[in-house]
Each structure stands twice: as C-alpha cells, then as structure tokens.
Nucleic acid binder design. Structure first.
Lengths: 213, 213
DNA sequence: GTTAGCATGTAAGGAGTTACATGATTTT
DNA sequence: AAAATCATGTAACTCCTTACATGCTAAC
C-alpha cells in the first residue's frame, strides 16, 4: 500500500504511536533513534511527512495548537492557524498503526538491516516476543557471517596487507565480534523474560508506561 | 578540477596507486577497504571508473592483457582486445597521483567523515606523518563530541525512555567510547613511531614494501 | 557445445543532503 | 523593535542500488 520503504517511515510511525508530535520535535527524537552521527535534515523529514499524510498513515491533529510546547501557557485557543504556518501536530491514523505493526515484523530486505535494526530494537516495547527473537537472531546470524568472512579474508591476505590496512580490518572484525556478543546477551535476557506479550490490537487506550510524569 | 568527491574515488585512486587492476578485481579490494557490510555494486563502480577516465585521473593500461589473472599462463600475447570487451586494466595517470595526494590531506567536509575515515586510514602508508596525526586527532575530537552529546542526552532522558531504547543508546555510547580509545592507541603508536616520511613526490619507482613476494 | 563464472556496462530510481526561502514566537 | 530560536517547506543535487543486458573464457 504505502510506497516509501525507508527507515524514516518506520521511525516516524513508532514515535508518533507513543505520542503525537510536530515535525521539529519529531526530528530530535529521530536523531536519537536513528543513531547516525549526523542529524536528520528537514529536507528529508518534511517531504516524508507530506507523503505519509498523502497516503493516509498520519493526520494533522486538530486539538493540538501548542499544547506540547513546554514554555507555553494553556490560555490560548487551539491555535491561530489563519495565515498558514502554525505548528502542525501529527498523529497516527488507524491505517498508520496497522502499517506500523506490519513493518515491525518485516525487518525489510536484509541489505537494509544495518540501517533498520536499531530502529526495530528501539520499538521492541511495541513488538511481540517471537518477532523480537526472530529479529535479534536474524541480525546475529548475519553478523556472524560477516565476522567469519572478515576473519578468513584477514587470514588469506595477512602477508600482503600493510600495517594500517591490517589494523583497520582487525578493528572492524573486533567491532563485529563485540556486536555479536551484545546480541547474544540481549537474546539471553529475552529468554529469561516473562512471556507477557504486548497488547497491541486496537490500542484505544495509550497503554501507560511511557507517558511523561 | 575533478568533480566527483565521493569516497569511491579516493579508494580507487589509492588501490590503483599500489598496483594497476581491472574493475572486477578492484571491487573485491574496495569491499574490504570500504567496510560497508554490503558489497559495492558494479552500477556504482563502473560509472565511477568511466568518469575518472574521462577526467584523466586514470588510463587503460595497454601492456596488461591477463597478467594478473592467477590461473593464466604467461604464454599469451598482450591480449586479443579486438572485438571489444576484453579485460580492462586501469592505472593512475600523473594527475591521478597528484589528485590522490590532495585528497589524502583533505579529509573532506566533516559530515562525510564516518564514510571517509576508514579509507584514509587504509592509505596511511602513503600519507605524511603530520597529516596522519591531523586526521586521527580530528576524528577523535569529533567522536568525543558525539560521545559527550550522547552521554548528556541519555542523562536528560533517562526516566522517560523505555528499556530497549535506553539499551540502544547505551550500546551506541559504548561503541563510540571504544572507538575513541582505539584512536587514542593509534595516536600514541604514531607518536612513538620513527619520524620517517613517506617519499611521495614523483614516485617513478614503485617504492617497494608493498609488492607481492 | 553448453553451462558456470569472470568481466563490463546502462537505465531507472530510491533515499537522503545542502542550500535556500519564509513565517511565527519568545527573549532581550 | 531587534535578535534568537522555533517551525515549516522546496529545488537541485549526490551517491549509491537494483535490475537488466551483454560478451568473453574456462571447464565439463
């Protein structure tokens, strides 16, 4: 149904599911989740929101106005919104919620995993246990492949590589090994975890636990 | 002069400086250096080579033929090369070598650093000591910033983050810290290193040390 | 002589960036 | 009322990928 398959869409859906937000605020949260060194540009975000709006995954939230601006008092009518350019608060539509659940299970085309894994993990609180396990173990086995590939590649080329290239490879290998250990820990923790599933169907009530103090 | 600024160009120049190669072989080496999980696609490589050829950074090496095909015996004339589509071996032009040295010093627009740093490191064998230090220390200080940012972000948001998001942030932070320590080690090693500079001007002779047995 | 793998290429498109442009609100 | 910051948006561009298409060489 929806065309855009990037990480952004998933991340936006997941964040808006927690709480409605406007783009500017959204970006800050996205930067944390996406974990790219750099910050997400508005040139990426707004077109994405626009398209998600067009496809019907999100809507403008009319009873918003300025409610979640920290400094603002509540003595204002919902918002001016006359001469254009007010703050626009977005929220998920039912289709958006459904699509989010689909994407959570997908994990996407494997080549994107480096990009998507972190985002998937960030939303594990909304994800069923079996899906969590599938994603964690899938990720681990792909990293194990990569690790083994790197290992043999280093062995094969040990002699003809100069010092620096070798160090680079070595460090890369170590990073992957570390990541594998981390995943193994996560998987173990997951095994020990009580088998309560997220109640995710028709979440009319916010399903507290994430709401601000 | 040259328009293409991507990592690819730098990597190709660096590899071809060691030894002339054809695209297919080049790609294997590039995959090791670039350190992306995935493999570089021909759809990226060949257009890049084409453009570099057009700009005059590289040329086809006429006395190539099949020389560096492992299985092939040396009893062949330089190569058929009549009805098109033979193996094409590329080598650097003098301009290519010059441009390579420029790029080595540049380190590029800081936002690309995540992408370029590894490649720069891989070619440290061709890089002057002061430039090496500049790149290493620059990289470290940018990672330190990122680390501090992440640290305070976690502190500020500790309460309102759910378990998984927090774990993700924590792991990200640890990775950056680890990378900083690694860089510090590299820098220390660099300090202890005898101050011999690479002889890099007009390298008529292959400047042995990297050549195969 | 046909399959398998080496080798080169192109066209279309996805995903994000930079640079720009503008409006609204808060602080000084 | 000027400056800073919050907030939204667009156009042009970059870099890389996928999917396709083709030819050459070795092995069976």
């Amino acid at each position: 149904m929806a065309t855009r398959t990037g990480v952004l869409e998933l991340a936006v859906l997941g964040l808006l599911r927690d709480t409605p937000m406007h783009g500017y605020e959204l970006r800050k949260r996205l930067n944390a989740i996406l974990g790219w060194g750099r910050t997400l540009s508005y040139g990426s975000l707004y077109p994405c929101l626009k398209q998600m709006l067009a496809v019907g995954l999100i809507t403008e939230d009319p009873l918003a106005g300025g409610a979640n601006v920290p400094g603002a008092a509540a003595d204002r009518v919902p918002v001016t919104r006359a001469g254009r350019r007010g703050k626009i608060v977005y929220k998920l539509t039912p289709e958006g919620k459904e699509h989010f659940q689909e994407l959570l299970g997908d994990a996407g085309p494997a080549s994107w995993e480096d990009e998507t894994f972190g985002v998937h993990l960030a939303f594990f609180g909304q994800t069923d246990r079996d899906v969590r396990m599938r994603i964690l173990e899938g990720r681990r086995s792909r990293l194990e492949e990569r690790r083994d590939g790197a290992k043999t590649a280093i062995q094969r080329a040990r002699e003809r590589l100069d010092e620096y290239t070798l160090e680079l490879q070595r460090h890369g290998l170590e990073s992957v090994e570390r990541e594998v250990r981390w995943l193994t820990e996560l998987i173990d923790t997951e095994h020990k975890r009580p088998a309560v599933d997220v109640e995710r169907r028709a979440p009319e009530e916010p399903a507290g636990g994430l709401s601000p103090p």
